[in-house]
Amino acid sequence: MRVLLVCSAGMSTSMLVAKMRTAAETQGIEAEINAVGESQISNYVDKIDALLLGPQVRFLLNKVKANLEPQGIPVEVINNMDYGTMNGEKVLKQALDMINNK
C-alpha cells in the first residue's frame, strides 16, 4: 500500500505520516506513506495507490481528483477531527478503505 498525504508544504502532514506508519506497523500492514507539498504531487503519481489531502488544502480536491482518479488513484480530504488529533490509526483506515473500494 502506497499513500501520499498532501498539504501546503508537507510539514504538518509529516507528523501524521509518522503516526500512520506506527499504526500500520502495529497492525502488520506493509505500507509506504509519505507527505509532500502540493507542488510535488506530480512526482509521485506513478508511485501511489491513494492520495489524501490535508484539510487546509481541501480547495484542491476537484483539481487533484480530475488529474488522478482517471488513473485509478482515489483522492479524499482527511477528516478535520482525525487530522487535528493526529489520529494515525483512523487516517490509515481511511486510506485502506479508499484502496479497497477502487
Rank of each mutant, 00 (worst) to 15 (best):
N34I: 06
A95I: 04
L60K: 11
G28F: 02
R2G: 00
E89A: 14
G84D: 01
S14N: 07
A50C: 10
N80H: 12
T26A: 07
G10H: 05
V36G: 03
K19E: 14
G84K: 11
K19L: 06
A50G: 08
I78L: 11
L61T: 14
V75W: 10
K65T: 05
K47Q: 14
I48S: 08
S42E: 10
R58P: 04
T13G: 11
N100G: 12
K63C: 01
Y83W: 14
R21H: 08
D97Y: 04
S39L: 07
E30Y: 05
E30L: 07
A31G: 06
V6F: 14
A35S: 15
A18F: 03
K102A: 04
D49M: 01
G28S: 09
R58C: 04
V45I: 15
L53I: 09
L92Y: 03
N100S: 13
I48R: 09
I78Y: 05
G88Q: 05
D46Y: 03
M1G: 10
I41V: 12
I78E: 02
G88W: 06
Y44K: 02
Q94C: 03
T22G: 00
N34R: 13
Y44E: 02
Y44Q: 10
F59E: 02
N79E: 13
G84R: 05
V17I: 03
V64S: 07
C7I: 01
T22D: 03
N62E: 14
M98D: 07
A23L: 13
I73V: 14
E69S: 15
R2P: 00
Y83P: 13
E69K: 11
N101V: 00
S12H: 12
T26Q: 12
I78N: 08
Y44F: 13
V91H: 10
L60N: 05
E76G: 04
L16C: 08
V17D: 04
A9E: 06
K93I: 01
G54M: 09
K102N: 15
K63D: 15
E32V: 05
M15R: 10
A66M: 14
G88H: 07
I41H: 02
V36F: 02
R21T: 11
A9P: 02
S42G: 00
V91E: 13
G10E: 01
Y44P: 05
G54A: 15
N34K: 09
A18Y: 06
L16S: 08
L16H: 03
K90A: 15
K65R: 15
L53P: 08
S42Y: 01
V91Q: 11
G72D: 05
L96A: 03
K19D: 06
N79D: 15
M1F: 11
V75Q: 09
R2K: 15
K47L: 07
A50V: 10
K93T: 11
S12F: 09
Q71A: 13
G72A: 09
G54T: 05
V6C: 07
G37V: 07
I29V: 14
E32M: 01
K65C: 00
P70K: 13
K63G: 06
M20H: 13
L92F: 10
I29S: 01
N79I: 01
Q27R: 14
Q94E: 09
P55Y: 10
